Amino acid sequence: MLLLFRQLTERAEAFCRALEGRWALGDCGNSVIVFVWQHYKKMVIWPARLAEKYITTEERKAILTKVNDYAQTDDWFPALSTIIKEISNELNGPPEPRFDTGTLSLLLSVGLAVGLTLFITCCVCAFRCCGNVKTRERRKSVERAMDNLRNSVIRRGNP
């Protein structure tokens, strides 16, 4: 029974999604579809993109629970009147606070990019400094060898 209920809900939501796209209800994404499937005594509230900020999933479930008795007794006028009143109240209120994951992901990616840039810069500087020290030591040893060779040539040349 629960599986049938879930399938009916998914079919009704798919129909609402298609209906919203085909009818172009509100170009701003602020429309709300109330779908009534009288044969199955099923109702779905389908808010568009911007309307979802005002009517959350929990609020839709609460509204449908409130009118479920009307739907089960085929008393559709009070059910729809209650739904319209509740949706109006929700749409006229302030939007529900939501966590903005887009901004968070942007901040994290910028922070990661800055951190990697600093790490790479520090590594390059460290390698250059360490590389210069080794090069200096090599130069000094080469210079010492050259000096020793020069001194030995000079000593051999002057008996």
Rank of each mutant, 00 (worst) to 15 (best):
C28V: 09
A145K: 05
M43T: 04
S141Q: 15
L8F: 08
E13Y: 15
E13W: 12
E59G: 02
N158K: 06
T135Y: 07
G157W: 06
E58K: 05
E59V: 03
D100G: 06
L50T: 01
A14L: 11
P159H: 09
S88T: 09
T103E: 10
L104M: 05
K42M: 12
K42Q: 15
L118F: 04
R156I: 15
R60S: 14
G157H: 05
A12H: 01
G157M: 09
R144N: 12
G93L: 04
L19P: 02
S81L: 06
L106A: 00
Q7S: 01
Y70D: 13
S152V: 08
R60H: 11
R144S: 07
A71W: 09
L104H: 00
E13Q: 13
M43L: 10
E59N: 06
R136Q: 05
Q38H: 10
K66Q: 13
C130W: 15
L106G: 03
E52T: 09
R22V: 14
E10W: 06
L64Q: 06
I154A: 11
E96G: 00
M1Y: 05
I55F: 08
R150V: 14
N151P: 08
Y54A: 03
N30T: 04
S109I: 10
F99L: 10
A12G: 14
R98K: 12
D27F: 03
V32N: 02
G111V: 08
E52W: 08
A51D: 02
M1R: 01
D74A: 03
Y70W: 03
T101Q: 05
A12R: 01
R138Q: 14
I33D: 00
S88K: 04
L91R: 00
P94I: 07
K140L: 13
